[in-house]
Write a protein that binds this DNA or RNA. Structure first.
Lengths: 252, 252
DNA sequence: CTTGACCTTGACGCAGCGTCAACCTCTACC
DNA sequence: GGTAGAGGTTGACGCTGCGTCAAGGTCAAG
């Protein structure tokens, strides 16, 4: 009872191209091949095909399917590890959804991405990697833990402080003062003191941030618009960076 | 202020290969190309790169990113349609997970009616009165009709999904993570998505449950031990409630 | 014998780069 | 000024699972 490739395809709801592909990779050779090259399938191959499609619908890859079917590789085990995969994917998607929604909120909120994004954003920018790479794995973790450890009131206070500092930077920039001048340097000093309060910063605590960290941060303000937004956008951030750079060169 | 390709790559935590790819497809041409063919990048291109990577992390494809950046194609709109994508993907994954679990159960000869007891749809049994009292007569009726409309297989799948979610909550709690942290919040997100699938929930359907409903449910898990049992008892339920509360405050 | 449906074997395309390969270029040190 | 080593360049293949032509044989029916 051999059937042609099209018959089989229609029977199980797939295409002949797929069947030829499965033949090509050795997953499902036809039961017989005519002298003309035509592929023919009997009931056994049909059963095998149905198993293949079942596993495929579960999301398994073709090599994994081959393992399960051919080597009688414990199907349950294969499915369990596949299940972990699916769960991780789902979590990843959930996090992405959260990020996208947050970004949309920020977009429609415009300026509202101020302080909240300021630190929360650390999670999602590539700077996390940079922070970890440059100043060690625990630098990020410490900062993060510190932030999470605060009460809502403390967080709010911190954000107000950050907003005030940002506002003063913006005002200074708008007055067109010299980044290397006294006023701007006084702001840079405040910025330094402010950072000193974060336990996670490299060189944080009594001594305050290191020169490298301080300079890296300054660049970050320019490079990342979400940070830059705290200082009046691109040009404001450049002003802050310039002032911070001068400060770092003179004092750190 | 030009930097080499490697410097830029390290700065943002990617590879030079990626940058050359972005150049190839016209997504991010270098600001300058030396006579030797070397690519150099200035601050502006760095900013653009940051944006690219941000959008990429949100899951957008490179062409979509180009649209957003170049044609000033309304970023919010792009993100919203991307969000729909993500939701559909999540649903697909949820269904696959349910199928895989069902298959595993079938494999181990599982004839567990425990699942039936595990979660009989929360609008059932004794909750009828409370549901009606809080969210109106038809809330219960809708949920009930929805539940009855499902086939046995669908019911079983639903219960397994509930069981999986409960298991993940328990595992998360046992690992001692922060209810406000990313992982717990990702679970809360899943919980939200899961509820969204129930037509009877106030605010159910596209928008998902309302904040009030979500918070009320969270409290119910703690207050009623029959619910709490799904999340590892009293303490587990408190963990779930805390995470859900944080989620609701932040997102709903 | 012609027509049309069905079959065959290539081979490119897609998404986003990783990973050689073969070959310049710049910097530093002796 | 020679040499090593780090870093740069342009190809080009690989991966997943087929969709989609392209060019050309085969078979049943009229």
């Amino acid at each position: 009872m051999d059937r042609s490739i099209q018959e089989i395809a229609r029977l199980v709801g797939t295409t002949s191209r797929t069947l030829r592909h499965y033949d090509d990779i050795g997953l499902l050779p036809p039961s017989r091949v005519g002298g003309n090259g035509y592929r023919y399938y009997d009931d056994d191959t049909l059963v095998r095909l149905q198993r293949i499609l079942l596993l495929r619908d579960l999301g398994l890859g073709l090599p994994a399917i081959a393992d399960v079917l051919d080597r009688e590789e414990d199907a349950e085990h294969a499915l369990r590890s596949h299940l972990e995969w699916l769960h991780r994917e789902q979590d990843r998607l959930a996090r992405q959804i959260a990020s996208v929604e947050r970004t949309i909120d920020a977009l429609e909120g415009g300026e509202r991405l101020m302080a909240e994004q300021m630190f929360d954003g650390f999670d999602h920018t590539a700077y996390r990697e940079e922070v970890e790479e440059r100043w060690g794995k625990d630098a990020y973790a410490k900062g993060d833990a510190w932030w999470r450890s605060m009460s809502d009131d403390e967080k709010a206070a911190w954000q107000r402080r950050a907003a005030a500092l940002g506002g003063d930077w913006i005002a200074a920039h708008e007055r067109g003062i010299d980044p290397a001048g006294d006023e701007a340097q006084a702001l840079a000093q405040r910025h330094f003191e402010w950072l000193r309060a974060i336990p996670g910063t490299p060189g944080g605590g009594e001594d305050g941030p290191t020169k490298e960290y301080f300079l890296g941060l300054a660049e970050m303000y320019v490079a990342d618009e979400r940070f830059g937004a705290n200082y009046g956008g691109r040009e404001g951030a450049e002003f802050v960076r310039d002032a911070m750079t001068v400060y770092a060169e003179r004092r750190l």
